[in-house]
Design a protein around this nucleic acid. Structure first.
Length: 427
DNA sequence: TCTGGGGTCCTAGGACCC
DNA sequence: TCTGGGGTCCTAGGACCC
């Protein structure tokens, strides 16, 4: 039994560097929406001690002094690069789980132990040559150990990007586990780290030797699973085909704070359109819409207001108009004047497959058919001419909208838009 | 001045029922 | 006066992930 975890180094930064090789060797960060926080850091930036999630405005001085280059995030580009990388990696195993935009698990059962290391090297080189991305490979008996091995492969130069856990002598394994802080374990976050430390569990080694039953009582079944996985007992299965989403969200912080109900309504309508779009693309219907609006937590001197409303539909639907109406009801109910709003969003809940949808008793068959026809036509136009070409007018017609996000340093969609391909400067 | 977005899973606790 | 216990379902909140 062996599982590989392959993931890209500084994925977003590496994607940008593929098309702008002059960024190689220079300190680069990629920023979140609204150019708010740092979401990817090149090795040079990590070495300066810049933490993930640092607000960009706090880095101005350092950036100027050190010449840090900041780029707005370009998710279209990253998604396309990710697809290419995943396609290549899928050739190394019949069973692949794409776990996130920049990492996947490969099931390597059936391969001899002495082949694993060279397979890892081969995967690494192929991705590097074919899409230009640097990746690290960790191979072990469980997903949790593969994650740790991957960490070792990346952090310790002597492993050269590939670490096969079971090839290591027991003494080396023990030494590594005793060196690694427990916070490195997949599934152990900040809260758990603090609680573990209180009970004297500091390193991965300590956690591995904790009593699973007792730890389950103190934390939850997830902690027990964690410990067992660290001992080499697989508890987390491979998921080849991602199940349909149980919840679909769309939310954004505003580029500029807004106060009027009209602007909030536009924003909520746009998020609703996007979310229901995603819903239809996965062939689902949703039974409820949740809408939230809130002021900025970081503006403590201003009056704060957080509100959420959940609207249950009479029948599960995938008709954008139904959700837009529900959104209007929700907003009218919770909007309060006099606040400066910083963020809004919607969630689609109670999602089920469209196949399970029972005939709507309160709409005629013709009405149902017409609604479906309308949505299908809108989707087709948007696929052909680009997202947002055709959409309900309530989502705002100005472009860019006053409240839309800031993204001052976005790179072109090199790989997915002909018009922007021309601007790519190779070399 | 300026602090992201989209997910999943688990547990506790309340409501309700028998 | 004495005031059970177990099951299910739902939701909110908290933890985690990238």
């Amino acid at each position: 039994m062996a599982i590989a975890l392959v993931d890209a180094n500084n994925f977003y930064v590496s994607c940008e560097r593929v098309f702008r090789p002059n960024l190689e060797g220079r300190p680069v960060v990629v920023l979140s929406n609204n150019d708010g926080c740092v979401v990817a850091r090149s090795a040079e930036v990590k070495a300066m001690g810049v933490a993930m999630g640092t607000p960009w405005f706090q880095l101005q001085k350092l950036a100027k002094r050190e010449g840090i280059i900041a780029l707005s995030s370009n998710y279209t580009l990253y998604a396309d690069m990710s697809n290419r990388m995943m396609g290549i990696l899928s050739s190394f195993s019949p069973i692949q789980e794409v776990y996130s935009i920049d990492e996947c698990f490969l099931d390597l059962r059936g391969f001899a132990q002495d082949q694993l290391s060279s397979m890892g090297q081969a995967a690494r080189e192929k991705v590097r040559q074919w899409v230009g991305l640097p990746v690290g490979v960790g191979i072990a008996a469980t997903k949790t150990l593969a994650k740790l091995a991957n960490h070792v492969a990346k952090k310790m130069p002597e492993y050269a990007g590939v670490c096969v856990w079971d090839d290591l002598p027991a003494g080396d394994q023990q030494r590594l586990l005793q060196q690694l802080p427990v916070s490195e374990v997949w599934g152990v976050g900040r809260q758990w780290t603090a609680r573990l430390q209180e009970t004297g569990i500091q390193t991965v080694w300590d956690l591995r030797h904790a009593d699973p039953a007792l730890m389950r009582k103190r934390f939850s079944i997830l902690m027990e699973r964690c410990i067992r996985e660290l001992r080499g007992e697989p508890c987390i299965a491979m998921v080849e085909i991602p199940p349909p989403r149980q919840e679909i969200q769309s939310s954004r912080s505003f580029g500029h704070p807004i106060t009027s109900v009209d602007e909030l309504g536009e924003a909520i309508s746009l998020y609703t359109v996007r979310a229901v779009d995603t819903l239809r693309r996965q062939g689902s219907v949703a039974g409820a819409l949740r809408v939230f609006i809130h002021t900025s937590l970081f503006q403590a001197h201003l009056p704060q207001y957080h509100a959420t409303r959940t609207i249950a539909l009479n029948h599960p639907s995938q008709d954008t108009r139904v959700f837009l109406q529900a959104g209007r009801v929700a907003l009218a109910d919770m909007y309060r004047p006099g606040f400066v709003y910083a963020k809004a969003g919607v969630h689609l809940l109670e999602i089920t497959s469209v196949d399970t949808l029972q005939a709507n008793l309160f709409l005629s068959a013709e009405d149902n058919a017409r609604a479906l026809q309308l949505m299908t036509t809108m989707d087709q136009v948007n696929v052909r001419f680009g997202r947002g070409t055709l959409q309900p007018g309530v989502a705002g017609l100005q472009d860019p909208r006053g409240w839309a996000m800031k993204c001052g340093n976005k790179s072109p969609a090199y790989t997915t838009r002909w018009a922007e391909l021309a601007r790519a400067k190779l070399g």
